Amino acid sequence: MSAHPMPRSSWIFPTLAVLLFIATSIPSLGIGFTETTAGIVFAVVLLVILFGTVFAAVHHAEVIAHKIGEPFGTLLLTLAVTIIEVALIASIMLGDKAVPTLARDTVFAVVMIVCNGLVGICILVGGLRYREQDFQVTGSNIYLSVLIVMATITLILPNYTLTTPGPFYSNAQLAFVSVATIMLYAVFLYTQTIRHQDYFVADGSSEGAAGGHVSNRLLAISAILLLVSLLAVVLLAKKFSLVVDAGIERIGAPEAFAGILVALLILLPESVAAISAARGNDLQKSINLALGSSLATIGLTIPAVAVAAYALDKELVLGLSAQKMVLLVMTFVLSMLTFGTGRTNILFGLVHLVVFAVFIFMVFVP
């Protein structure tokens, strides 16, 4: 990595994000979101800077991960993305308008975007270029087994509990489920990075060890810029929530659309990397990035949001509607068939994209 200079965007966007937050914090400047032409321009600038800062944060996390190796590299990447996600969800949930379903909608959107949209694009892109692509069935089955359990106990089971009427968990139930998901994710990380690392590496390739090509100077700069990027996203999350609320109200979109926006913002950097890997005939890496992000979202975001909701005495709705549960179950059944052979083609990718299209359509026309 040190052979290439640090991209300018990796320090420009965090700097712009900090400057934008400072500017909006000075009342006399009058900079902020309003439903005027100037306010719309501010919203566009905010979204561009926010997206750029998220990309910068992921870039710096990858630089550090390359240097420190596994399992700490994977954990660092996961924590960086999760901090951003929790900040965005909490800022909208704690806004002027209560959105108790946002965490549920975001997690569900992540699963549907990843398991249908991203997986479908990766398989289709790879199939068009290479006809067929191979991957490790054992590793994919591990991903799916953990993902199915996590999604079921966080998104479906709350509808069928007796202690409290659905779609809620009682405090005791929410605490138990949060601990269970964290434990599942921790054991999964241990399995992926230490115990059975070979399950998640394509045949004929080898997992890179800690990289010695990252200089200590670059490592220090990336560590500082990573902290700045994460802090900037957290500080701008409140401004983002105002833009999302106003945008949804103006276009008349359902509340679930906010969850999709947050999910897209969080998944964009990893999605670009996954599609690039598929184009490079490394579908295994695409699967690792895609399904791994789903596990991290449920395993870490739900417990973090649960703690925030309990501490601030906020309502947290987790159970999905019957329609969404059908889509979730169909997604898991389809994923088991897709990843059950170790070989993919364009038809698998197209089927996943059709399910993703159904998901998006049903958000607006339920």
Rank of each mutant, 00 (worst) to 15 (best):
R217E: 12
V354F: 07
L230T: 13
L77H: 05
R131P: 10
K285I: 09
A306Y: 00
S206P: 03
L300S: 04
F332D: 02
D282Y: 14
L50T: 14
S28P: 13
L29Y: 11
A56C: 10
H59E: 03
I156P: 02
F21C: 11
V58E: 06
I260M: 12
V146D: 04
V333P: 01
E85R: 10
V114T: 14
M112R: 05
V201Q: 11
L227Q: 14
D198K: 14
S145Y: 07
L75P: 09
L316I: 06
A61W: 00
T138V: 15
M6C: 12
M93V: 06
S205F: 10
K238Y: 04
I89D: 01
F108D: 02
A172R: 06
T163G: 05
T101D: 03
N171G: 08
T301I: 11
L20A: 04
L155D: 01
V363N: 07
F200K: 08
Y199Q: 14
P269H: 09
E70G: 03
L77D: 03
I31K: 03
I302A: 02
A308D: 07
V41Y: 11
A180F: 15
V351L: 08
L337Q: 06
I142A: 12
V363P: 01
I40K: 12
W11R: 12
V244D: 09
Q173E: 08
K238W: 10
V201A: 10
N216L: 05
V81R: 09
I251W: 08
A43G: 10
L162I: 11
P5I: 05
S25T: 08
L128G: 05
A296T: 07
H66Y: 07
L75D: 13
A357S: 05
G166S: 02
T78K: 06
S271I: 08
F176N: 12
G252D: 06
Y160V: 00
L155P: 00
G126M: 13
F55A: 03
T163D: 10
E85S: 14
K97M: 03
L94I: 14
I142Q: 04
F188Q: 03
L264T: 09
N159H: 01
G95S: 13
V119N: 06
L47R: 09
T161I: 00
T154G: 01
V363F: 07
I89S: 01
T82Y: 02
A223P: 13
L267V: 13
Q192P: 04
T181Q: 05
G126V: 14
T53N: 03
T24A: 07
S140G: 11
F364I: 08
L347N: 09
A90H: 10
G52K: 01
H60S: 02
T301V: 10
V58I: 15
E62N: 14
V111W: 04
S91Y: 08
L268G: 15
Q284G: 02
N281W: 14
L242W: 10
A237I: 13
G259Y: 01
Q323V: 10
L50M: 08
V365Q: 09
L218P: 06
I153S: 01
A180S: 12
L300Q: 04
L219A: 15
I275T: 09
R129V: 15
L242P: 03
G204S: 06
A256S: 13
S170N: 07
R343F: 08
S205W: 11
A278E: 01
L16Q: 11
G39C: 07
